[in-house]
Design a binder for these strands. Structure first.
Lengths: 205, 205
DNA sequence: TATTACATTGTGGACATCCACAACGCCGGA
DNA sequence: TCCGGCGTTGTGGATGTCCACAATGTAATA
């Protein structure tokens, strides 16, 4: 079973062990990985928690690992750790969406606090993603025509107007409308709008 | 008239002049301020553009200036510049919502690029804010009762159900509903939902 | 005190939506 | 070739919404 945990990715065994021990004493579940490659190879979509990622590692660097993670569509909060970081690197990492960026040596309690905040954020993300996926799944059930009708419903148009625009009878629109409601599991146009707005809108940071 | 411009805030006159010249040659409108205090004293809500803020200044620091700006509800993109920055400072600034954080000496073209991106972002924000304010203004016209009814409409409930929940007649609900539509300038419950969702939802970065 | 804003309710009709029952043509897969 | 999904359309009725016309009571304000 995959419960939320902090994934520690560092090629230095001493640090992995130290962090593992640190998190253990603070009751934070964690897993350790000796390289970016091993972590990415094991990673499953659906893993929750966060990643504590060392930047300078043999093989793939932490920064590259982060890019791959995001390319795979994984939105896990990532906390970078580095002993040789500079301001431009930190700025670039955060602007790309890293959760935090700290330098060694760091204060243990600070790291734990950051990780716990990251875990909280991820728990929220999980709820949002679950909702999103549910809605997307329902949307996927709609035929092209039904989606077309749905858009016009969401624009607040009357069946009569929709019928005119699509050059079909009002009765047909009603049929599609009914199907849309059924597949989307809503009982009114307003509920539909609320539901669809859950997965749209939230764009453009 | 206040057109979008880059506000350069630096206590070093040589730098102000240099940046002003730089922006002028790149056709980027700008204004200069010799201190955080002078900028904040002149600042009007509604000013658009971005701020290029030196961190180390006599009197109020750039970081403090940023905090005051945000406390006032101003969302202008802020680009920090510093000659003595470190990673934690940069990280803290970005996590608080700074647009960018660069070190001196910096490449002129880089700064111009950053500022131009900031100006773009701000132009988008302006549109979003304008919409938001329009909707908020309409919402403010609603009486308490009307808002109450509106919430139930947005929940997708029938007038009959709303009447039961508020212990009033269906006719009264219809009257409120009508008033809500009129004041919100929409013609259907779906339009209302779309409009209100523009100002809700977009929370929780 | 007179005015105004607000919440409340009723009647009646026009219009829109929801729904059950019924049917036809097209197209792709078994 | 037959079946099933899909888009299409119709009828008719129950239910919900929109709106004009009309009215009453309360509270705050000018």
């Amino acid at each position: 079973m995959t419960q939320p945990c902090a994934h520690i990715i560092d090629d230095d065994e001493a640090i992995r062990d130290a962090l593992q021990w640190l998190f253990k004493t603070r009751d934070v579940a964690c897993a350790t990985w000796p390289s970016a490659e091993s972590f990415l190879a094991a990673l499953q979509p659906g893993w929750r928690g966060c990643a504590v990622l060392d930047i300078r590692m043999d093989g793939m660097s932490g920064l590259e690992c982060f890019d791959v993670l995001r390319q795979r569509g994984n939105q896990l909060p990532v906390i970078f750790i580095t002993g040789h970081g500079d301001v431009p690197m930190a700025v670039a990492a955060l602007k790309k969406g890293a959760f935090d960026f700290i330098e060694k040596p760091f204060n243990d309690s600070d790291l734990v606090d950051i990780v716990m905040r990251a875990l909280e954020i991820d728990a929220n993300n999980q709820r949002a993603e679950a909702t999103r996926e549910t809605v997307e799944a329902r949307l996927a059930l709609l035929t092209a025509r039904e989606q077309e009708v749905m858009e016009l419903i969401l624009a607040g148009k009357f069946n009569k107007v929709i019928a005119d625009e699509l050059c079909i009878s009002m009765r047909t629109v009603e049929a599609h409308r009914s199907k849309v409601f059924e597949k989307m599991e809503v009982r009114s146009a307003v509920e539909l709008a609320q539901l669809v707005n859950l997965v749209r809108n939230r764009g453009g940071h």
